[in-house]
Design a protein around this nucleic acid. Sequence first.
DNA 1: TCTGGGGTCCTAGGACCC
DNA 2: TCTGGGGTCCTAGGACCC
Length: 429
Amino acid sequence: MPPVILLADANNFYASCEAALNPQLAGKPLLVLSNNDGCIVARSAAAKKLGFKMGQPLFQCLDLVKKHEVEVVSSNYPLYADMSARVMQVLARFAPQMEPYSIDEAFLALPGFSPAELDWHSKTLRDTVRRWTGITVSVGLAITKTLAKIANERAKKVPELEGVFDISAYSTEKLDELLANTEVEDVWGIGRQRGRLLRQYGYSTAYDLKYAPDGWLKKNLTITGLRTAWELRGIPCLPLELAPPPKKAIACTRSFGGSVTKLAELREAVATYSSRVAEKLREQGSVAGVIQVFIHTNHFNPREPYYANHYTMRLAQPSSFSPTLVNYAQHALEQIYRPGYRYIKAGVIVTDLSSQSAFQLGLLEGPDPWEVEGEGRLMSAVDTLNQRFGREKVRLASSGLERRWWMKQTRLSPRYTTNWQELPIAFAT
DNA sequence: TCTGGGGTCCTAGGACCC
DNA sequence: TCTGGGGTCCTAGGACCC
C-alpha cells in the first residue's frame, strides 16, 4: 500500500497571520496588499464574503473598503515567514515525511493508517496547529498529490466537513462523481490557457480530464498535463520532495514607490537588488555564473511611451561576492538605460548556479584562492552582522542612502515575532 | 493618480557538428 | 534545376504554481 498523502493548507494565510497577532482584527474584513500597496494578495474570510478579488488593484475597490470599514495592511513578509516556520514545525510532528510546498502548505506522507486513524490524526493535527500558532489549516487526504489538492479545496469550501476531507479510500465510482463536480480549471496544474483549450475540446471537468486520451494530452498539454491526468487516475507521478533541491535561479525584482528617471537612482536600486541576490546565493551556498538586469516603464499607461529592456552577462568567474555582482549589474544597467523614460520597476536575476564548494575544488586555473578566501570571509562577517542586527544594517554605499525609489508600505504591521521592540502586548498598564 | 514577487518545468527552434 | 540526415546544446518564451 502506498502512503496516503495529506495536504495541509492554511486558510487565508497572510490575513490569518495579521489577525493572530492583532486580536482586534479577528472576524473582521481584512485585506493584505502586495509590495507597494498595489494589489490585494490576501483576504480574510469576511473580506472574501464582501466580494474582494485576489489580485485586484486596491484603487479599483476603495469605495467598498470605505463602505464596510475594511482593514487594509501592507504585506509583512518577515512576519509571514516566521509564522510559516512555526506552522511547519508543528506539522512535521505528524508524519515521518513532509514536503513543505509553499509558505502556507505542506504535503505529508502517512503510511499504514486505517481510515479511522487518518480521521483522528487529521483532526488532531488541525487542532494542534490552531492552538499552538493561531493559524487554521484545512486538510485533504488522497493517494496522489493532485487528488489531495482537490480534497483540500473541498475541505475549505464545505463547512460540514469541518476542515478535513479524506478521499483516499474512495471507490472509483465515488471518486468519479466528485471529479465530475470539479471544474477543470480547479485542478492543480490547469491554469487559464490550458483550461480554455480543454474546454474547447469538451473537457470541462476533472472527470473529463481524467479520461482524456493520453495522446491528446501529451500533444496539447505536454508531459506535465499527462502527469496531471494520471494523478487523477490515482497513479502517483509527483513524489514527495523531502529535501528542498537547491534553487536554479535567484531573483530580486521590485516596483518603485514612484517613477524613477535618473540613472543614479536606478543604480542604487540595482545595487540594492544585486546585493540581496548575492546574500540569497550565499544562504544556499551557491555561486552564480550568469546575471541579468531588467528595467521597464509602466505598461498600464497608454499615454506614455513604453520601454522595457534587459541585459545578460556571463561572469568571468562564478561568484556570490556582493561587490562583484553589483559591478556586473551596474554595467548591465548602463547598457539598457535610456534617458527620458519614467521607470517603475527593475530587477536582477542570477542563473547558472553551482555549488560554492564544487567551484572551489575545481579551481586549478581559477582566480587567486587567497582572494576568494578573503571575499568569503568578508561576506560571512557581513551576513552574520545582518542576521544579528537586522537586514541591511551593513551594506554597500552604492545601494544609496536616501533611496527615494523605495517601495511604498504605508500600512505595515509591527514585526511582532521577529523584533524585540515590536512584540505583541498582552497587558497594557 | 493608483496594477506583486519569486520560482519551476517544458518545448520549439536556431546554431553547430559530423 | 537539383542540394542529407541525425544528433546535441542552448536559449527564449510560454505555462503553471503560490
